[in-house]
Simulated assay, not measured.
Amino acid sequence: MPELEQSESKLIKQGSEVVLHFDLKLADGSAADSTRVNNKPAKLVMGDGSLTLSFEDCLLGLQTGDKKSFTLEPDEAFGMPNPDNLHHLERSKFNAETPAEEGMIIAFTQPDGTELPGIVREVTGDSVTVDFNHPLAGQVITFDVEILSVN
């Protein structure tokens, strides 16, 4: 009766509630994100928008206890950097609380009140170049998952 045993364990499908640990690594092996750092697994419902479609596709068909590693090209992960997401702002928009220093990540408030993080890429005279692309845009990502539960 192995078929019954197989049907007892739930496979991840659209609408499944999944609790998992994940690690995101860059091509050089450095860690980009991990739920293991604070031992706080991620909980999501497949299709709720928590993960991109490409990341969700990696999970489909897995079940509790499964550990798997996937490599995603930039267009499958966080996309390629878009030059339209580079903005030049006046240095006067920055202050001691939010300094215009290269490498700083600053949350900018959108007209609708939502916040969008931007990375200060360059400071030249009175111009500050801010990059609103996802910090992992253009990167090949290794997505390691461990499925803790599926409901």
Score class of each variant (00 low, 15 high):
137 A>R: 01
87 H>Y: 09
119 I>L: 13
118 G>C: 05
125 G>P: 09
40 K>T: 15
86 L>M: 09
44 L>E: 08
133 N>E: 03
96 A>K: 14
109 T>C: 12
140 V>N: 04
92 S>I: 14
119 I>G: 04
111 P>W: 08
115 E>V: 15
55 F>P: 04
68 K>M: 09
41 P>A: 07
78 F>L: 01
92 S>G: 05
103 G>L: 09
137 A>Y: 02
57 D>C: 00
75 D>N: 10
108 F>Q: 11
98 T>S: 15
45 V>T: 15
88 H>E: 06
58 C>P: 01
117 P>I: 03
45 V>Q: 13
48 D>M: 07
131 D>A: 03
70 F>H: 13
54 S>C: 09
109 T>N: 13
106 I>S: 13
40 K>C: 12
97 E>H: 13
67 K>V: 11
41 P>G: 08
53 L>M: 02
72 L>Y: 08
94 F>E: 05
101 E>F: 10
95 N>C: 06
40 K>G: 07
91 R>C: 03
92 S>K: 15
67 K>F: 08
47 G>W: 10
50 S>Y: 15
140 V>Y: 01
97 E>C: 08
136 L>V: 00
41 P>L: 04
82 N>Q: 07
100 A>Q: 05
139 Q>T: 07
94 F>S: 04
54 S>G: 15
56 E>K: 00
127 S>Q: 11
114 T>C: 14
49 G>A: 11
134 H>W: 03
131 D>R: 01
79 G>M: 03
53 L>Y: 06
117 P>G: 04
119 I>N: 09
49 G>K: 07
129 T>A: 05
120 V>E: 06
66 D>C: 05
84 D>T: 06
88 H>T: 09
101 E>K: 14
67 K>E: 13
123 V>R: 06
80 M>C: 00
134 H>K: 02
72 L>R: 03
80 M>R: 08
43 K>I: 11
107 A>T: 10
53 L>E: 12
130 V>P: 02
139 Q>G: 03
88 H>V: 14
76 E>N: 06
130 V>T: 00
71 T>V: 15
116 L>Q: 14
127 S>C: 03
66 D>M: 02
83 P>S: 03
140 V>Q: 12
69 S>P: 00
108 F>P: 13
57 D>E: 07
109 T>H: 08
123 V>K: 05
74 P>R: 10
122 E>V: 05
63 Q>C: 01
122 E>N: 13
116 L>P: 04
59 L>Y: 08
54 S>Q: 10
113 G>E: 12
97 E>K: 14
112 D>S: 12
136 L>A: 10
100 A>S: 12
138 G>P: 02
137 A>F: 05
65 G>W: 05
97 E>I: 07
80 M>Q: 12
81 P>Y: 09
77 A>N: 12
48 D>E: 13
74 P>I: 07
57 D>F: 00
43 K>R: 15
83 P>R: 02
133 N>V: 00
57 D>S: 12
52 T>C: 09
84 D>G: 02
62 L>C: 06
120 V>D: 03
136 L>G: 01
133 N>M: 04
46 M>D: 09
128 V>I: 06
40 K>A: 15
132 F>S: 01
73 E>N: 11
116 L>V: 14
68 K>S: 13
70 F>G: 00
